[in-house]
Amino acid sequence: MSDREPTVIAKTVTRMVVPIIAVTAVALLVQGHNLPGGGFIAGVLTATAFVLLYVIYGLDTVRRTLVLRSEGYGFLSGPTESYARAFAGGLAIAVTAGIAAVAFGVPFLTQGVVFVEDIPLYGELEYASALAFDLGVYFVVVGSLLTIIAVVGKE
């Protein structure tokens, strides 16, 4: 795969499709409570966007252009470090979302729903605390999948 450059068509399509995938993923994450979607699906979809970039543009381009922190130690260097941070952070978010319930005096991981009235344009808006937990799921899935792909891909 590596000795042949992808075609211009592939590159251009990827360039256009990846942002769409990313937005779709975020939409799936946010709407997950009421429509098909959720943190897990959104996470996997985000990972496919990255995989598309990897396949078409290669590891080095992704590293140069997308990932801000590229220092790191040993096998944790490069984007892998960011991915590892993502799944660690995601796990922290999910656990924090659970512990927050304990702070309110209800059992671990109890979720609540708040309806906020009188918001311009939207009127009534429902916010489920489960979204915070789902966000954690999202980051764990994205981080873990990309870590595995980056590590295996680098070999």
């Binding site: 009421n34 943190g39 729903v113 309806f115 489920a128 937990f133 789902d134 799921v137």
Partner: peptide, 20 residues
């Protein structure tokens, strides 16, 4: 009311099961 915790508050049952 404006706040409740005994119902999931979502119409996607699969997701409510997963996160709640």
């Amino acid at each position: 009311g404006p706040f409740f915790a005994d119902h999931g508050g979502g119409s996607n049952v699969v997701n409510v099961i997963l996160v709640d």
